[in-house]
Design a protein around this nucleic acid. Structure first.
Length: 867
RNA sequence: GCCCACGUAGCCCAAUGGCAGAGGCAGGGGACUUAAAAUCCCCCAAGUGUGGGUUCGACCCCCACCGUGGGCACCA
């Protein structure tokens, strides 16, 4: 899609001899000039200024990948930049920082592949990301740039880890973990998909027993759940977090094992179905299984355990439909009826949740029902849909009325739950229990490129924290990032680093696992407040001034990862007294994904947009004429539909790119990129530019009128101020831009242009296309940046229309429009409407049954056949 | 299977109970030009996914269905 540059075409046309040269809009000259100015003047350096209200607007900082920025990044960044600039003009003290989430797997894998050090690769990538981001003219305070992989940053990540450790929130445990053979590391639950694969790459994940660092996020489950209510976040994100935390209110019930002193405890949310229990099920890994299993059943039980531990989560889920299990031969005693109930093991009961044991109620639970059918186990109905109604076929899982439940019969399910739980508690056989699906956070990785733990393992095997003054524990320089031959993590290769004095005396070995990538992002929003502090992670008074983050913009992919982890750390810091707010991010906004059209021919081959032509709404390969299927898809190299921001900026400029990113549609919506759409915003900028050049004169702004603008223009101007301001407050950037376009279209058509009007317009457009605005602002004679000029205020008295326009409809269909003086009364409007020939035609031979008048809005006549 | 969001001119999107069009792309015509580009002006085009309902009046609210995208899915 070649497009001649404006400057080239003009030069080609006029040559050096022509004197009346219009000054063209040339973003390629203007934009670097102002970017340099902002950097040199430190225009966006932020200081604590308690005289002003603060506004902390934050982007989710990027992982600087090798492939550079894609058009999705600048979408969120542009939105926050516009708001940051708008808020500055409104007199806010704005904190708007950027940095790099620079530790992580991809750099380490690239290092293995390319033979370069991860630090080196990370440096190249961050330099490229910074260059690309700066080309868009964002008003970040670059003095606050941070990088999670630098020792002066991760020193404090380690420091916070020590605080967690002190409080018993970090511990080592041997447990079955998610091991990804392809990556050679363990993963957190949050990183594993329901299918049992790594969410990022799709590599399979299996269970392995390993000793790992865990963070006790479960201790905060309730607060993480409850405090969601305090937040101005999108409902779907809150819902995802609630589901992940998975609170359930139920009861524990103790069962005795017949002929033994042993007991086991089940967890249930349906204590009201206790009389319907016909057997119990333990998870295969339940600690009592070995002891309970009778000699006759031992072989079958062992075989089943063997089989189920080998099965990955993925396999388990694959055949959810068929439930399997084996009888242990042992019997449990029903706590209320004394009945003997078989004890089975089955892998649909998961060891890590609740007590790892359940009571089976086949009449009222779909899983148990199916299990009963498969193995011919009995069933007892104890809940009826309504009093006296018949028992249902299949499992009746809803609440109803209790039956065959002794003294509880006839109670509602809810009432019986409360009552029986109290009674069990009184007799020591049970208790109310709130259970969470959330597990502790697996916090170590067998990787090189991450934060080292500030811990050593003593000769006695005890993990010992290093003192604060030993921080940072720097990552030793390695050239080989593979695990050692005996399977220890890569850091075990750093032999001289490994040996260290045990703070308790003697020698110890350093912890060789590293922290996961999420560690650095758990608190980075706090480091921005005070990024150079070498005495503390941040100064308390700065935290009190800036926190919480007023607006946090990023994609939904972090709904239960980063956003849950950082809330957890923040709450710990809150409990320690290091931060003053219970939550870090007051308002969250998710930008939508940007997709792109793809073109695929009948053979399945993808074509680049530039090789496609359109005829009569159908698309064809230009060279061959073959027809192609068009689809909106995620951008990917294989689909040949990737858009590179650098190319767009080279062709149209950063201001145009910013405008288009916002103009495409609502920020939170998924929408397709169409490079053709750049034409519209580019023309808008050029038309805007020409507003300051009148006629053929090349003297900048010389012919602007000093007279007051016409009443119509004045009205539209103030309507635009009010509209754009409201749209910005609501983050409706697309409609704000369209209002600005409308104004420009009007001003372009106007016979003369008032300097005052254009001044206001320039202020309104400045947050959207800042280079453009700075350039004109300077040419108008201002010495300072427009960035801190005051935002215009709409004069509401100027919005009043001079006449009233009333649409008149008959039976809801528009028939005419009346133009009336502002003070027209309903009676006058009615009279005029009835006299209108267009209306009368539809009244002929009919009776008016009703007249609806909405003051100053519309008039509707409801008519029917003659009475 | 369950939950959520979205379906409006050829395309991206406005309009949130009151005139279906704010803005843009694409398309057509005209002005300017020796011509073209650029620019300016004008025009074209949907009755709002489908079927019901509520209402004087529905893109908007309610019900069912279809399509697209996203999330969840043995948690007892």
């Amino acid at each position: 899609m070649a497009r001649p540059k404006l400057c080239d075409s003009i030069r080609g046309l006029i040559g050096p001899s022509r004197s009346k040269l219009r000054m063209p809009y040339e973003p390629s000259i203007i934009e670097p000039r102002w970017q340099k100015f902002w950097a040199e003047q430190r225009t966006f350096r932020t200081v604590e200024d308690h005289a002003k209200p603060k506004y902390y607007v934050l982007d989710m900082f990027p992982y600087p990948s090798g492939s550079g920025l894609h058009v999705g990044h600048p979408e969120g960044y542009t939105a926050t930049d516009i708001l940051a600039r708008y808020k500055r003009m409104r007199g806010f003290n704005v904190l708007h920082p950027m940095g790099w989430d620079a530790f992580g797997l991809p750099a380490e894998r690239a290092a293995e592949r390319d033979g370069r050090h991860p630090a080196d690769i990370t440096k190249t990538n961050t330099d490229n990301f910074r260059r690309q981001i700066q080309r868009l003219g964002f008003s970040y305070d670059w003095d606050r740039e941070i990088n999670t992989s630098t020792p002066d940053y991760y020193r404090w990540t380690q420091w916070i880890f020590l605080r967690l450790h002190e409080r018993g929130l970090a511990y080592r445990a041997e447990l079955p973990v998610n091991w990804c053979p392809a990556l050679g590391t363990v993963l957190a639950n949050e990183e594993v998909s329901p299918e049992g694969t790594y969410k990022e790459t799709g590599d399979p994940v299996e269970k392995r027993l390993m000793t790992q660092w865990m963070l006790r996020i479960t201790a905060y489950a309730e607060r993480l759940m409850k405090d969601l209510d305090l937040l101005d976040w999108p409902e779907p994100v809150k819902k995802m977090q609630r589901e992940w935390i998975g609170q359930s209110n139920g009861a524990e019930v103790d069962f005795k094992v017949a002929g033994s002193e042993r007991r086991f405890t089940v967890y249930t949310t349906r204590a009201d179905t206790l009389f319907g229990v016909t057997w119990c099920v333990l998870a295969p890994e339940h600690p009592l299984v070995q002891e309970l299993t009778t000699a006759n059943n031992r072989a079958a039980v062992d075989a089943y355990i063997q089989r189920s531990t080998r099965r990955s989560d993925r396999e388990r889920k694959a055949d959810q439909a068929t439930k399997t299990g084996v009888d242990t031969g042992a019997r449990a005693v029903h706590p209320l009826t004394g009945e003997l109930l078989p004890i089975w093991i089955a892998d649909y009961v998961v060891g890590g949740y609740g007590t790892g044991a359940v009571m089976a109620v086949p009449a009222h639970d779909a899983r148990d029902h199916e299990f009963a059918r498969t193995y011919g186990l009995p069933s007892k109905t104890v809940v009826l849909p309504a009093a006296g109604s018949a028992a249902c076929e299949g499992a009746f899982g809803d609440d109803g009325v209790s039956a065959h439940s002794g003294i509880y019969s006839g109670m509602s399910s809810a009432a019986m739950r409360t009552r029986i739980t109290q009674d069990l508690e009184a007799s020591g056989q049970g208790r109310a229990k709130v259970q969470y699906a959330l597990r502790d956070w697996l916090f170590s990785r067998q990787r090189y490129w991450g934060e080292p733990f500030p811990m050593v393992i003593g000769a006695d095997g005890v993990a010992v924290p290093l003192p604060d003054d030993a921080l940072p524990v720097e990552l030793p320089h390695l050239v080989d990032f593979k695990p050692t031959a005996d399977g220890r993590p890569p850091l075990a290769r750093a032999e001289s680093w490994l040996q260290v004095a045990d703070p308790r005396g003697g020698m110890a070995l350093r912890e060789t696992n590293t922290m996961p990538q999420w560690a650095g992002s758990c608190w980075y929003y706090l480091r921005y407040l005070d990024p150079k502090n070498d005495q503390a992670p941040f100064a308390p008074e700065k935290e009190r001034y800036w926190m919480p983050v007023d607006l946090y913009v990023g994609g939904t992919e972090h709904a239960v990862l980063h956003l849950l982890y950082s809330r957890f750390w923040h709450k710990v810091l809150f409990d320690i007294g290091l931060v003053s707010t219970p939550e870090p991010f007051q308002k969250l906004f998710n930008q939508g994904m940007i997709l792109a059209w793809s073109y695929q021919d009948a053979s399945g081959k993808y074509w680049h947009e530039k090789d496609i032509e359109e005829r009569d709404g159908k698309h064809f390969v230009r060279a061959t004429g073959a027809s192609v299927e068009t689809r909106v898809e995620k951008m990917s190299k294989s689909k040949l539909n990737v858009v590179n921001p650098d190319d767009i900026i080279s062709e149209y400029g950063a201001d145009a790119m910013r405008l288009y990113e916002m103009f495409m549609g609502p920020l939170d919506m998924t929408k397709p990129w169409q490079t053709r759409g750049m034409e519209g915003v580019s023309r808008f900028l050029q038309r805007s530019w020409r507003l300051w050049l009148a006629g053929d004169d090349d003297t900048w702004a010389a012919q602007l009128s000093e007279a007051a603008p016409s009443e119509d223009i004045e009205r539209q101007l103030h309507r635009t101020i009010a509209g754009v301001t409201e749209d910005l407050e609501q983050m409706r950037f697309n409609t704000a831009i369209s209002k600005l376009m409308e104004l420009v279209n009007t001003l372009t058509a106007a016979p003369q242009r008032s300097r005052a009007t254009l001044n206001t317009y320039l202020l309104l457009v400045a947050p959207f296309c800042p280079h453009f605005a700075e350039e004109i602002w300077r040419r108008l004679g201002h010495k300072n940046s427009i960035a801190y000029a005051p935002w215009p205020v709409a004069d509401l008295s100027k919005l009043i229309e001079s006449t009233l326009t009333i649409p008149v409809s008959v039976n809801g269909k528009l028939r005419t429009t009346l133009e009336l003086p502002l003070d027209a009364t309903e009676a006058q409007i009615r009279e005029l409407a009835l006299a209108d020939p267009g209306v009368q035609r539809h009244l002929a031979g009919a009776t008016i049954r009703k007249v609806i008048y909405v003051p100053k809005r519309m008039l509707n006549l409801v008519v029917g056949p003659p009475a």
